[in-house]
Design a protein around this nucleic acid. Structure first.
Length: 159
DNA sequence: GCCAACGTTGGC
DNA sequence: GCCAACGTTGGC
């Protein structure tokens, strides 16, 4: 089966990589966008790898790697009035939202910041994260871009 | 089906 | 807090 790669955003004030480290495996819940829902449903596979990205924070950055460990299944947080992800239009019979389970694989010693990624816009021109107007919380990462970004980890200059 | 108003995301 | 770039809603 073809290996696929993703970038998945989360606000660290809501769910950070350290939260995932504590849990080991956790549902990636709260997706409330149909394009992203369709990605989960139609293109994400067990065994895919994903960058964990911290968004809406002081230093937006890729902070680690996780593995997709389930196929898409209903996100019942939409039915819980006390949940941050409650969707009043949903019922048990009409629940369009999906989630997958993810397992932490690695937390980077040094995050790969958005600023660093922007220093490589030529090589990473096709990375959706760097494109104007990108707001999707899950986007694909081409194999070339995956390898290239991992290469940035060791490129820091030690003074 | 159109489209204006409104809500959300997310970097800065 | 600002604002660009969307997505969603709802009147018509």
């Amino acid at each position: 089966m073809e290996q696929r790669y993703w970038l998945m955003k989360s606000e660290p004030s809501v769910f950070s990589i350290d939260d995932l480290i504590r849990l080991g495996t956790a549902p990636w819940e709260g997706i409330r966008n149909y394009q992203v829902r369709n990605l989960l449903r139609d293109h994400m596979q067990i065994g895919d790898l994903a960058f964990f990205y911290h968004s809406s924070c002081k230093e937006p950055a890729i902070v680690g790697i996780m593995e997709i460990t389930s196929s898409a299944y209903p996100d019942s947080s939409a039915l819980l009035p006390n949940s941050l992800y409650y969707d009043p239009k949903c019922t048990a019979d009409k629940l369009p939202w999906l989630q997958v389970d993810v397992r932490i694989m690695e937390k980077f010693d040094t995050p790969i910041t958005l600023a660093t990624l922007r220093n490589h816009t030529e090589a990473l021109a096709q990375l959706p994260l760097l494109k104007r107007g990108n707001r999707l919380s899950i986007t694909p990462v081409a194999p070339f871009a995956w390898d290239y970004i991992l290469g940035l980890r060791s490129s820091a200059v030690v003074i």
